[in-house]
Design a protein around this nucleic acid. Structure first.
Lengths: 346, 346
DNA sequence: GTGAAAGCGCTAACAT
DNA sequence: ATGTTAGCGCTTTCAC
């Protein structure tokens, strides 16, 4: 085991790892050669490379990522800002992004938005000087966040919000078409005036688009909807249950069809309906959104519109890395399809 | 708007942001003074500071995190390695950790383990030279991962795996006591020989501890268990359903109690049991683990042992940051309590 | 109270 | 094929 120098005097903290100089000394070459062994191995003689690599192993040397980043102006880190990181929805996007980033030698820095009691607002306060790019998901009007991302100067890829700015890439989900497909499907089980949409938050872009798809199909078929056919609340099973009890069941109707804004809402509706003694899908047909694991666990199993979460995360990274490599390339807008998965509930 | 210099010739990529030198020039001070304004404001005269801050705003200057990290040997980034980042379990730990880290000015770098088709194995390949510490969750025997973390040289805090090494902090959950509490509770509904534990993966530490707690209570009460009273599978609703159909219902028994390894398994058991025409909790009492949102959505609502996921993540960060600040402090082992939440299913 | 200067560990010209 | 050298943007002595 060769010795590792400690050129520290009383600095911040003594380094415990070997530096490029230690390796150079041990291999009896210059630091440039050591650097080349890592960055352009074809430029160094086999024998020299061997000596260097031997020293590297001996010393357990790993290039210092910070110093490298300072030189190259590339940290190999991209930030990902999601409205939240909780639950199957967001964590699956995160997983897709992480997987794609790693495949290209990049790492993900988390930047979930500030939550209750955590300060001023929706800004991320991200260390922009240390990330090579930012994938940001904007599901509701959020000017401050968007401003911050935009003005940070780093390449940005936006998820969910449909932006049209030069130099900004975009990943969207075709919620409306998914909703249309689901609605057409529900129409095989109930007449138009017995179809309901129970969405999440009204300000949420996905919610809006899903409602729009639902509305479009019904209006083409049967003219304007009644006000009670579209309701917004939040993305919880609680809300689905409450809606079913207060609206659907209060009307004592049967032969209905419900398109829920997500699977949790669908599940809430499902339970309320069954408790009221009605059968699913015979009396009430139900379709959810997101196609989470819930759908397969519940009985009857729940039909749901699959949102390509993994693909969204991965695609955001793909576009982002492309723009990092080539900052002036044509902005791309990728729209991913959402597809109905039919199960027992409809 | 003052001009921003571009001392780039043909370097990697032209910086678009102002540097400390630009600010110094604009404020007519030295770069040392600019630095002091940020790091030791008490050392600089009020008037000077004003001039500097004015230039800072004018130029939109933000200290470069990379350069700062190189000097201080601190990146303000900690890695967090989880077996996966999917689902409510892991994402809630992540959330707790992120929230705590941000409260202290740190950021989280994700390092989920490699998954299928993504290369060699369970190592993270993390850029250790750029993180100030690592929180790593080890839920199954995983020597390579642990070796890597251990030998990386950065401060480490381990979750789930009970390690006893100098300089390594530890966050554990008292699964066994949670399981004991749940088992005692189930014994109010069924005799010992009618109690079952349906766990997740057998190699999973949590699974093992939960089974151990279950076993301890029953054996104290009634002597050795039958082999069929403890089963392992995986953490899915599918497995819970299959177990219920093949084991519990096949025996045609009623007056049983089931402790499930997690809520999904519990839900699978619940559905299978109800489909078989049995009542929950009257014929079969069920308790899950993790206390996820599922528990409140299902009907009957599911009793579950609450695992303090958020707190685990937060505590890991607290211990980690303490060790980063004070590398030689006494290793701490924090054991968090798991507590039974009784609902309708039992 | 402020400035000059020495690096942090590395990459990339530019030599030879 | 290898070495020398000039920084990347910043913090921190050490002088004044």
């Amino acid at each position: 085991m060769l010795a590792v120098s400690r050129h520290d005097t009383s600095r911040a903290r003594a380094r415990t790892t070997a530096s490029i100089a230690d390796v150079a000394r041990a291999a009896n070459v210059s630091i440039a050669t050591v650097s080349r062994v890592f960055n352009s191995p074809e430029l160094v003689a086999a024998a020299t490379a061997d000596r260097v690599l031997h020293a590297v192993r001996e010393l357990g040397y790993q290039p210092n990522a910070i110093a490298r980043a300072l030189m190259t102006n590339r940290s190999q880190i991209v930030g990902i800002a999601l409205p939240d990181i909780h639950g199957e929805f967001y964590s699956e996007i995160l997983r897709g992004a992480d997987s794609e980033a790693r495949a290209h030698g990049f790492r993900l820095l988390i930047a979930s938005e500030a939550r209750e009691g955590e300060g001023a607002g929706p800004q991320t306060g991200l260390p922009y000087s240390l990330i090579d790019g930012l994938a940001v998901m904007i599901t509701e009007p959020n000017q401050p966040l968007w401003q911050e991302a935009r003005s940070s100067g780093v390449p940005v890829c936006v998820l969910d919000l449909d932006v049209d700015e030069p130099g900004v890439d975009n990943v969207l989900v075709d919620n409306a078409s998914g909703a249309r497909e689901a609605t057409e499907h529900l129409l095989t089980r109930a007449p138009p005036h017995r179809c309901y949409f129970v969405g999440g938050s009204e300000s949420n872009f996905d919610s809006q688009q899903r409602a729009r798809g639902f509305r479009a199909v019904l209006e083409r078929r049967d003219g304007p909807l009644r006000a009670d056919q579209i309701a917004f609340g939040d993305y919880t099973g609680e809300w689905g249950r409450r809606w079913a009890e207060e609206t659907l069941l209060a009307q004592g109707r049967s032969g209905c069809a419900v398109l829920a804004g997500n699977d949790e809402i669908a599940m809430g509706v499902l339970f309320a309906v069954r408790e009221a003694g009605l059968a699913v899908p015979e009396d009430v047909a139900i379709v959810g959104f997101d196609n989470t694991r819930l759908c397969g666990i519940a009985r009857p199993t729940i039909s749901s519109v699959r949102i390509p979460l993994r693909e969204m995360g991965a695609m955001a990274i793909i576009l982002l890395l492309r723009r990092i490599a080539e900052p002036d390339c044509e902005p791309q807008r990728v729209r991913l399809a959402a597809q109905l998965v039919v199960r027992e509930s409809s």
